[in-house]
């Protein structure tokens, strides 16, 4: 889990082009949207691609997106549960 969290942070930085942010700067429990990293709806689309591209995980139901996308930890948990 810890390794997955670290990996996710690196993918987020790379794919979302987060300037001057290192994996250590990202609080895995902090909200990704609004506060915390301050991501927006375009970033949400990029995160969907990260899940699918790197972990083969598809978000089956859009209603579950909000809790899944809450933080790096929640993303990691979702990947753990749904990874093929």
């Amino acid at each position: 889990m810890e390794q997955l969290v670290q990996e996710l942070k690196e993918h987020l930085i790379e794919e979302l082009n987060l300037e001057e942010i290192t994996p250590e700067d990202i609080d895995a429990a902090a909200p990704l949207f609004g506060d915390g990293l301050g991501l927006d709806s375009i970033d949400a689309l990029e995160i969907i691609l990260i899940l699918e591209k790197y972990y083969g995980v598809k978000l089956a139901n859009s209603a579950e997106a909000k809790p899944v996308f809450y933080s790096v930890n929640s993303l990691a948990e979702y990947i753990m549960q749904n990874r093929k």
Partner: peptide, 9 residues
């Protein structure tokens, strides 16, 4: 498939 939105926009 899996096309990033940012470069398109």
């Amino acid at each position: 498939q899996l096309l990033n939105p940012t470069p398109f926009i």
